[in-house]
């Protein structure tokens, strides 16, 4: 079976929003929501979403035998991580002291209660929930047609801290600057929810569906090259 786009289902939460949004921007393409490693291997593109707590997500992913299929896909296919799907790509998360897939160098931290005050002295809530501005810090095919500073919908209590600044594709502020998008080779990952981010989000998904990245021969070289 040919699969154009596999949306990875490891039993954590609602994937309907993600698959509906992709179907909306990719009419006629075969979009499959799947937890089967063979489907991941057969797909041309992979979307790796996630909801809930990272320890549960890692456990459920492994329970379905998806780890090696995901790592293989992240080596040579257009690969989009969303929310926890971004966080799981890093080495470690403070949430439940959980090791991630280690595909990208860096860690995932909780918004620290002591720093959650804005310039006006007002308390900032956690989860960071709502529409925030995304500053594009890297020219990338997935930002095409999206104005720099466009707002995307976020809902999260943890954020990534890449060890290599060259991985950062986008910043957001809450109340300090954090990486809300990371990119390396054929992998692009976002902390926000493009599937819930109206026209900007649909544009990003549409860009992903059309993306033809140059695939690295050495996937873990750390180079920030994009096609």
């Amino acid at each position: 079976m040919t699969i154009d786009i596999a949306v990875i289902d490891y039993g954590m939460g609602n994937l309907r929003s993600v698959s509906k949004a992709i179907e909306h921007v990719a009419p006629g393409r075969k979009v499959v929501v799947t937890g089967n490693p063979d489907d991941v291997a057969a797909a041309d593109r992979v979307v790796f979403p996630g909801q809930g707590a990272m320890p549960d997500c890692m456990r459920e992913m492994d329970a379905r035998g998806l780890r090696s299929a995901l790592l293989a896909a992240a080596r040579d296919k257009p690969f989009l991580g969303i929310c926890i799907g971004l966080q799981m790509l890093f080495e470690h998360s403070e949430e439940g002291d959980t090791p991630g897939l280690g595909l990208l160098p860096g860690v995932v931290r909780r918004f620290p209660a002591a720093r959650m005050v804005n310039a006006q002295g007002e308390k900032l809530k956690v989860p960071h929930m709502g529409w925030n501005e995304v500053m594009q810090v890297m020219a990338h095919p997935l930002w095409q047609g999206i104005a720099d500073g466009s707002r995307f919908y976020f809902v999260h209590s943890y954020y990534p801290e890449p060890a290599d600044p060259g991985l950062v594709a986008g910043w957001s502020d809450y109340p300090f600057r954090f990486a809300c998008a990371a990119a390396r080779g054929n992998v692009f990952a976002v902390q926000f929810h493009p599937e819930k981010s109206h026209t900007a989000g649909l544009q990003l998904l549409s860009n992903f569906v059309a993306w033809q990245p140059v695939v690295h021969a050495v996937p873990n070289s750390g180079a920030a090259t994009t096609s």
Partner: peptide, 8 residues
């Protein structure tokens, strides 16, 4: 600039 207040 940062997080927007939401209207629902």
């Amino acid at each position: 600039m940062g997080l927007a207040k939401r209207i629902i």
